[in-house]
Design a protein around this nucleic acid. Structure first.
Length: 567
RNA sequence: CGGGGCGUAGCUCAGUAUGGUUAGAGUACUUGGUUUGGGACCAAGGGGCCGGAGGUUCGAGUCCUCUCGCCCCGACCA
């Protein structure tokens, strides 16, 4: 491609609304333009990058035997009523009626559609397993789109669905898909982590997220500094504590603690480590129908993880409870404890099981119990409720956990029969019994990956595309278009690069050196061949975008040098 | 959906507190010339329903009311 014939509208100034590097450089570099909130146009360069990523996904899916399909973007609302998700998705589903007044939605994900195309067609266990996927535009009318391509309303997603006749076979496929996704991200040149994720309200037995590590990521991850373990903090576990503070010695007693309500005050008052105090966190748990107050007990040194807490009671949401709400049901704010507690539903953190010499509220103003042996609570409900902190031990090895930020670019999920059962998608097993499919689902955010590459690979000059994602591998830049010998040499080089199968753009614009260099750096071609002053010595220069290092090479060795660099 | 901010040239923004010639700058664009290793210089041009509607006024980019759009924080996000 000749730059002079291309449509690459670069700009010196960034759009005022852009905050993230990916948003700024993808706009300035002429990859995308914004249309409306959460809607973007892909210009020629952006489209090339998108297609590169899609091609890699297609190749890897093909390798593991997944079959590409293409489902209708517009889906009948009936399917969503059948699965019960039309209410759950709420306003995120863009709904509209056709001329015959039938209700449709724009697909935000395609579980229903995918189930419907195998339903009554795949009818025997002999036809299983089957793994179908597509790469397609999705639409979710997000309440707050943001960060450019990172969270758009319209976006490109690869979504795959597998159907099985046993959970063992689903497990096998799930592992295969994890490996496949890993290869895709490796090929794209991304630094990522596969982490355990919250499987949430949808149920299922396993869920993993693929996280591209970047400061601007919206998710917080706990990762081990020694082994491969990583998890979204919503689901992260930790090893049992190794260094346990010295236990206070006290017999069970009711103790006057005037106006001592916080964990901090309490531990100072008794001169005891917060580890031996019991923290009560009271939330209002919201269900599909109704709500109730729930008290979560954790050690004073820990913090409540809301997603874990929510899952422990099967709630849709947890909201903070006001002191007035506590008083109303007869609790004493600041002095709530688990002993003889019948006014509120309790959930105890696993780490409080059989804890001894604890201090907890006495359910009476200005009194705490000391020397409490929590083994009396063994009949209570226990769950993992705490958020892991940096420095906590890894659950798999002796390493320590640290926190890092990630961009969720993929999510794989063991669905089981969550959709196949309500949608009555069934096959006949070996015994002739009608059985719902056991399903897995595998998503990957393709347009989000475009942004993720730049979030991870940029500098203050612009984009730094990886080899697999670059819109063009090489930019052949003619420093001064009036030097006929230079132009002639550039044309020859451009042609031979093309013959060698290296995607090249020839910057033949009538612009000055600095202008063209800035564009090359902003757009981020991996290699720019500068044809200019060094031609006096029959030499040209190669600028390596990643390091901005400039190599001087003999004019007749450029091709072989580039081949060597590209590898 | 709650809170805040912003809509003026393709883009980035002045101008709006206190209404008053023909609405500005930089950049981008067109033409001519000079330049040619880090977004050049000179000259001449084209480009605006001042987001939209209604009002107040002799007169509105500026004041009032209503709307629409965009951004940020939060809630939400299989």
């Amino acid at each position: 491609m000749r730059f002079s014939k291309a449509y690459i509208p670069t700009t010196k100034e960034s759009p005022k609304d852009a905050l993230l590097p990916s948003h700024i450089y993808l706009s300035r570099g002429g990859f995308v333009t914004q249309v409306a909130s959460g809607l973007y146009n892909f210009l020629p360069l952006g489209k090339r990058v998108l297609r590169k990523i899609e091609t890699i996904i297609n190749e890897e899916m093909d390798r593991v035997g997944a079959l590409e399909v293409d489902l209708s973007f517009v889906t009948p609302a009936e399917l969503w009523q059948e699965s019960g998700r039309i209410e759950k998705f709420g306003k995120e589903l863009l709904r509209f009626r056709d001329r015959k007044d039938n209700l449709f939605v724009l697909g935000p994900t395609h579980e229903e559609m995918m189930v419907s195309i195998v339903r009554n067609r795949v009818t025997s266990y002999k036809q299983l397993p089957i793994n179908l996927y597509q790469i397609k535009t999705k639409f979710r009318d997000e309440a707050r789109p943001r960060f450019g391509l990172m969270r758009g309303r319209e976006f490109v997603m690869k979504d795959g669905y597998s159907f099985h006749s046993s959970t063992e076979d689903l497990d096998r496929e799930f592992d295969a898909m994890e490996a496949s996704y890993k290869r895709i991200l490796e090929r794209l040149g991304l630094d990522f982590r596969i982490v355990e994720a919250d499987s949430g309200a949808i149920g299922g037995t396993g869920s993993k997220e693929l996280m591209v590590l970047a400061q601007s990521g919206e998710d917080t991850l706990a990762v081990c500094d020694t082994c491969e373990y990583g998890a979204n903090v919503e689901a992260a576990r930790r090893a049992p504590r190794k260094s346990i503070p010295e236990a206070p010695s006290a017999d069970f007693a009711r103790f006057k603690t005037p106006n001592i309500k916080s964990i901090e005050d309490l531990s100072q008052f008794f001169k005891v480590d917060p580890y031996y105090t019991l923290k009560a966190v009271i939330k209002r748990a919201m269900y599909i129908e109704g709500s109730e107050l729930v008290c979560f007990f954790i050690r004073g040194c820990d913090e409540l993880q809301e997603v874990k807490a929510r899952n422990s009671v099967g709630a849709i949401d947890l909201v903070d409870a006001s002191e007035a709400e506590l008083v109303e049901i007869g609790l004493v704010p600041g002095f709530v404890g688990p002993l003889d507690q019948d006014k509120i539903r309790l959930v105890m953190d696993n780490d409080t099981k059989n804890a001894t010499t604890m201090i907890c509220g006495a359910n009476e103003s200005d009194y705490h119990f000391v020397g409490v042996d929590l083994s009396v609570m063994n009949e209570a409900v226990f769950a993992d409720l705490v958020e892991v902190q940096e420095g906590d031990g890894c659950p798999h090895c002796d390493g320590k956990l640290t926190h890092t930020k990630g961009i969720e670019v993929g999510h794989i999920f063991k669905l089981g029969t969550t959709y196949s059962a309500p949608l009555k998608a069934e096959y006949l097993d070996e015994n002739g019994r009608s059985t719902p499919f056991i399903m897995g689902t595998y998503g990957m955010g393709v347009s989000r990956l475009v942004a993720a590459v730049i979030e991870q690979h940029h500098d203050d000059k612009g984009c730094i595309w990886t080899h697999a994602t670059a819109p063009y591998m090489v930019d052949v830049m003619i420093s001064n278009i009036k030097e006929e010998a230079h132009v002639a040499y550039a044309e020859t080089l451009y042609e031979s690069l093309g013959k060698a199968g290296i995607e090249t753009i020839l910057d033949d614009r009538k612009e000055r050196f600095g202008f063209k260099m800035s564009d090359a750096e902003l757009i981020g071609f991996p290699y720019t061949v500068i044809i200019g002053k060094e031609m006096e010595n029959n030499q040209v220069q190669i600028m390596i975008r990643k390091t901005r290092e400039i190599l001087t090479v003999n004019a007749d060795e450029v091709l072989s040098k580039l081949k060597e660099l590209i590898g």
